[in-house]
Design a protein around this nucleic acid. Structure first.
Lengths: 339, 339
DNA sequence: CTGTTAGCGCCTTCAC
DNA sequence: GTGAAGGCGCTAACAG
């Protein structure tokens, strides 16, 4: 019984290409690597044979030896968030452009992180970009396994990890400052879930900026989604007995919900009777019905940084983790009176 | 010089676990496979040793032998579309739940398909779910390589491929029927880009339904995005000299743009002066400012079907491609007068 | 520049 | 139920 090709369904191997091109298997291998030393003539023969057979090197066999899989794990918490699709699109684009592939994981709930990690390890990813809350132990697992990791809009509390963030505090301070300048007096804050890192950052920053001027804001906690923005507005209006001046939402989705609720339920005129601001700068924020005043995260620069920092660490394992903080851009829409 | 473990950085192998547990390597291998015959005692020893070392089977080595990578390629055309994130979230969820991993590809432009295919083949994916326009040759490549494929909201013109679609034609017919019943007379259609399969389906269906009753609709072609919905409305109003009754947009994003433009630019009251309908049933369509009348795609059922059809074909290579068509649900919002 | 020779880490017959 | 070999498809030293 012949050894070769029991099942013809198994796709061509480098041996098939080799014999068709009349060279050795290792010649084929070289022809498909970048820094190879192959005679142009030979290479051409090989490439032709390969094309004819539809041959493509098996990434699994290659990865087994080189220990470079060109796989990057991307972990996101909630894909349905208005903000993440843009991030994911950019990341995928940039990673592809640098010859890497995206292994995508999305968390149903933050508690699934360990399960996801267990799914990542077998694939020996070259690195990971994570926009989800990781414990120090979880970060440490990446370090222990020598997998470079970039935290996106998060930082490691103790464990060392590179990170890329938008400066939440600066953004909120700017918003508060401008709202105060415009003469607002009665503030409300609609915050995100407690387990969101940026959510808490923004909340603290906004609150502190207000407290500094002696203002104690009304407060409601939502879930970062449109509906909870509407609920939040209701709650704040209730707490403040209606004399609410300005509402700071810790993301855009909630701000949009709050705007709609203010207009459609309470028939408030925006920004005349009430100012509402958000954070992120998502697409719908620019829609003409909203024209939300918000802080736009520099997504392109951030994803760009995340990818290049990651690649750098993949190629240079010894590097010390680096933190990069990006300033947001104030989008002055028409949902708030600024000073 | 000792053979084992030149670099301690290389992570534990099954041999390491074996010697720690005092068994053979193949015992370890068995312990990590489902239908293995291992004594409970032995298995436990092994698992303990594995945990201690942080061992996880190498998916690359395993895949090399078993020819099952548990990798599913997911190819989307434009992630920034309002509709795809939901689909992707569902797909990722369901694929994860069935022990598969998502290798994500997103197309910058439809012409990149061949480049993406070239990136897929080396990874020997078990299957693919594609929501992008593929030529028959491209579909044939999947068949040739024995990679089961599910087309999402597309069909193969000639080449055989399984597919999952929402019934565009039925949806549009229903919308048109109800709009006609309500007495609308002057119709406009804002269509998507020509290279969109569903876009053209919806366009044809709507147009045909109108022509059947002797109505020739005004027509504008957009790009499926919010802005082009606004532009579209402008153009239609222009064409019709203002006596436009009803606007059919072939997706929700454009419908939302059209609504905003109608209200904020032309100060038209919706649905009193003009009815606007969409297609998809995305999140923002339900926001209180819009309450869009549209056809909601049964995303959960569709993704569910896509995944289970795919898995089935992976495990049963001989199967004949199957097409599944799902009916949408009419969401009667407040953006249109229906009859 | 080219072919030969070992493995990468694991699964998979086989004997036992 | 368990261990000993062989090999999946390829890369990485080596000789030539």
């Amino acid at each position: 019984m012949p050894k070769k090709k029991l099942h013809e369904t198994d796709g061509p191997t480098s041996y098939d290409v080799a014999s068709l091109a009349g060279v050795s298997q290792s010649a084929v291998s070289r022809a498909f690597r970048k820094g190879a030393s192959v005679a142009p003539k030979t290479r051409e023969k090989i490439m032709r044979a390969a094309k004819q057979l539809g041959y493509q090197p098996n990434a699994f066999a290659r990865g087994l030896i080189t220990k470079r899989t060109h796989l990057i794990a991307v972990v996101l918490s909630n894909l349905t968030n208005l903000y993440y699709p843009e991030v994911l699109a950019e990341l995928t684009q940039r990673l592809s452009a640098t010859g890497n592939r995206v292994l995508l994981f999305s968390l149903a709930s933050e508690s699934d992180v360990d399960a996801v990690l267990g799914q990542i390890w077998p694939y020996r990813v070259d690195g990971a970009i994570v926009a989800a809350r990781l414990s120090d132990e979880q970060i440490q697992q990446f370090n222990d396994r020598g997998v470079p990791i970039i935290l996106y809009n998060r930082v490691g509390d103790m464990a060392p990890a590179s990170s890329v963030c938008c400066d939440s505090a600066a953004g909120e301070r700017e918003l508060v400052k401008q709202l105060l300048n415009a003469g607002h007096q009665s503030f409300g804050i609609i915050a995100g879930p407690e387990d969101s890192y940026v959510g808490e950052e923004r909340l603290q920053a906004a609150r502190k900026a207000l407290l500094n001027t002696g203002i104690e804001p009304f407060f409601h906690r939502g879930g970062f989604d449109y509906e909870s923005g509407a609920e939040g507005l209701r709650a704040l209006l209730d707490q403040s007995a209606g004399k609410l001046d300005a509402v700071i939402c810790t993301n855009d989705a909630m701000a949009l919900g709050a705007i709609d609720c203010a207009r459609n339920v309470f028939e408030l005129s925006i920004p005349d009777q009430i100012s509402i601001v958000g954070f992120d700068g998502v697409g719908p924020a620019r829609w003409s019905s909203y024209q939300l005043t918000t802080i736009r995260q520099p997504v392109r620069r951030m994803t760009q940084a995340a990818v290049s920092m990651l690649i750098e660490r993949v190629e240079n394992p010894g590097m010390i983790p680096e933190q990069r903080l990006f300033g947001g851009e104030l989008l002055t829409g028409k949902s708030a009176r600024l000073g």
